[in-house]
Computed example of a mutant assay.
Amino acid sequence: MNQVPITEDERQSEDRSWATARTLAEALPYIQVYDRQTVVIKYGGHAMGDEAVAKQFAADVVLLKLMGVNPVVVHGGGPQISAMLDRAGVKSEFVDGLRVTDAATMQIAEMVLSGAVNKEIANWITEAGKQADVRGVGLSGKDAGLLTVEKTRRTRRDPDSMIEHEVDLGFVGEPTRVDPKLIRGLIASESEDWVPVIAPIGVAEDGKTYNVNADTVAGAVAGSLQAKRMLLLTDVKGVLDKDGQVIRQMTVAEAEQLIADGVATGGMIPKLETAMAAVKAGVEAVVILDGRRSHAMLVELFTEHGAGTLVKA
């Protein structure tokens, strides 16, 4: 009996099938580690700039939910706010990386973050999870008293007189309290598979609304939930050493030393500070990784070597 030869395409397809099976088998121990555990994901403004990458992110979040993980997404939106401010003819000023936020800027920031960006991410997750009935639900820190904040205080030293002056950042806040009851209720729901998507807007005790750094909100939320992991998705591979190589793992003490030695600089400093604060608040570990890379979260959580820099106690 003559056998029909296997084509090259068929052989490659069969090889991919076996590779997929091996990957799933290798991931099993890690899937068990994260079963029913909470993972807070900070989704950065630059990481979500590309729609195709954003939709892949949403699909990966759905996959996490289907694998038994409880993902909670906290998002930024700095580039989107800047674009809207430009269109409105409102000029922005930054102090130490924080946007000075007057009343007009605050209005636009809330509209962009709690509106367009928040609902778009929630919708991407809902669309990606349509077949499995996984749904993204958009929230802000103003919902159900989720995020209470206070006005951020910053000082700047005058280079001539060396006297420190307080800088008024306007409606920029810092978390003082997170009430996680709403998030826990959504996670615990047995009737629906909800994925909370949180915009970094909070309310002070006097009822005023404040814009909050999304990294800081993610850390505060992760601490309040005692999350297994917090993933800081950004536009860099991780924390680099003095030779430019990614550091795979470090302790809080080692992170503090990196900052003190000037190895960690610029925007990496506040990310490390957020990671350290989250770990000190009870998060098992925080990972800084490149959110632009396809399936970065899955590689980090379900493979041996991970995908970024892990910071632990």
Score class of each variant (00 low, 15 high):
M111C: 10
M276L: 03
L225R: 06
G185L: 09
E205N: 01
A260L: 09
E51Q: 10
Y30R: 12
K119Q: 15
I108W: 13
I41H: 07
E304W: 02
Y30N: 08
V283G: 11
V72Q: 08
D243W: 03
A204I: 03
G223L: 05
G282S: 11
K55Y: 10
H75M: 10
Q131A: 12
E164L: 09
I269L: 00
V299E: 08
K151C: 09
S294Q: 15
F171V: 05
N118M: 02
K65V: 01
R248N: 13
T265N: 03
A59F: 02
A83Y: 03
T176Y: 01
L64E: 06
A278Q: 11
E284A: 13
E14F: 02
T23Y: 11
L169R: 04
P200F: 05
E14W: 05
K65R: 15
A103C: 02
M276I: 14
A275V: 09
A47S: 04
P175S: 06
T105C: 08
E120V: 11
H295F: 01
D9S: 14
T148I: 03
I288V: 15
P200E: 07
S140L: 13
P79H: 07
P29H: 12
L146W: 09
I247D: 10
E190Q: 15
G68K: 07
R292K: 08
D35P: 00
A278K: 11
T101D: 10
A253G: 08
R248C: 04
V236H: 01
E256R: 15
T265G: 03
V212C: 00
G141H: 06
G291L: 09
L289K: 09
R157H: 00
A144E: 14
T148Q: 08
E127D: 14
K208C: 04
G129R: 12
D243S: 15
V73D: 10
F302T: 00
G308Y: 05
V263E: 08
L139H: 08
I201S: 06
E304S: 13
V221A: 01
D102F: 12
A222T: 04
T7L: 12
S13E: 13
D241E: 11
E300T: 11
E256L: 05
G97T: 12
G78A: 05
M1T: 14
M1A: 06
L64V: 08
V149G: 00
L85P: 03
I288T: 07
T38L: 06
D96A: 13
V4W: 00
P180W: 09
A313N: 12
T155N: 05
K130E: 09
V279W: 01
K119E: 12
I183D: 08
A52S: 14
K271E: 12
N123A: 15
Q107A: 13
V239C: 11
S13V: 02
V134N: 03
F57D: 02
K91R: 13
L66C: 10
A275Y: 02
N211E: 01
D102I: 09
P71I: 09
E300Y: 03
L169T: 14
E127S: 13
G78C: 05
R156L: 00
Q226T: 08
E254K: 14
S161R: 05
D102Y: 07
A54C: 10
T303H: 02
I187T: 04
Q56T: 13
G141R: 10
V137H: 06
D206I: 00
A275R: 11
D215C: 05
K119L: 05
D60E: 10
V263R: 04
L182R: 08
A214S: 14
